[in-house]
Simulated assay, not measured.
Amino acid sequence: MVTVGMIAAGCGSADGGEDTPTTTSAAAPEESGNPWDLPVEQRPALFDPCAEIPVAAIEEGVGSEVEPAEQFKNSRPGELISCGWSNREVNVVVLSTWKSKDEYLADPAFRVLDQNTRHLERPGLRITDNRSDPIDNCVQLYFTPRGTIWTGVDLTTSLFEFNGQQFSDTCEVLTKILPPMADLFPQGDVQ
């Protein structure tokens, strides 16, 4: 949703007997309320999952303890920020980037599972890594005023176990574990 700012023009005149010129300022340029319309360097700071999602929210969703997974951590402000958590059954990765929905749809590295998914009353995109089977990898994307929020789940056991169930569907696992994290994501979906 694009919000257009007000265009302001001002007129002024002076009191008195002399003729004074009337000045009119030029119209201010239109400004979009959508940060996605701004150059990347002018957009707000990306959502930082490392600082803004406590481990308790991950554990609440997963239903068991997790440990930080340093191999999933990246900090490139303005470009990509990611964090991950793991336990014996699952890897959970949350990242933010300014990569748009159209860029994900066009990226051959991903397979679209649901282009117009609605999850937790929010529009989004559900994808999987093109090299993986959706049985072991699922990603939910939300497009927010602070970037694209990517939440991915990988099941790590040979029998794709989750909470004691074998051959769990990874997208169902993601749907189950996402609410405590998503409550912390920026509101105001923009794409």
Rank of each mutant, 00 (worst) to 15 (best):
D19Q: 13
D15P: 07
I7K: 14
E52M: 12
T23E: 15
A14C: 15
P44N: 02
T24W: 14
L46Y: 04
E30Q: 08
R43N: 13
T23P: 14
G63W: 00
E60R: 12
P21V: 07
L46E: 04
E41A: 05
S25I: 10
S13F: 08
P54K: 15
S64G: 10
E59V: 00
A51M: 11
A27I: 07
N34T: 03
E31F: 12
L46G: 03
A28D: 12
E31I: 13
P35Y: 01
A26P: 06
T23K: 13
A28R: 03
A27N: 08
A51L: 14
S13A: 11
A26Q: 11
W36G: 02
F47N: 06
A8R: 15
L38I: 01
T23S: 14
C11R: 02
E18M: 03
E30P: 00
E59L: 03
G10P: 03
S13Y: 14
A45C: 01
A9T: 14
E31D: 08
P29V: 06
E30C: 06
G63Y: 03
I53A: 01
G16Y: 02
A51D: 13
Q42Y: 03
E60M: 07
S13Q: 13
P54S: 11
P44V: 02
D48C: 12
N34Y: 08
N34H: 08
A27K: 11
A51E: 11
S25R: 11
A51T: 05
P49L: 04
L38R: 05
V62Y: 04
E65D: 08
T24P: 00
A57S: 13
S32T: 10
S13E: 12
P39Q: 10
I58L: 01
G17H: 06
N34G: 04
A28I: 11
A56E: 15
E60Y: 01
D48Y: 07
V55E: 09
I7Y: 00
P49E: 08
E30V: 14
A51G: 10
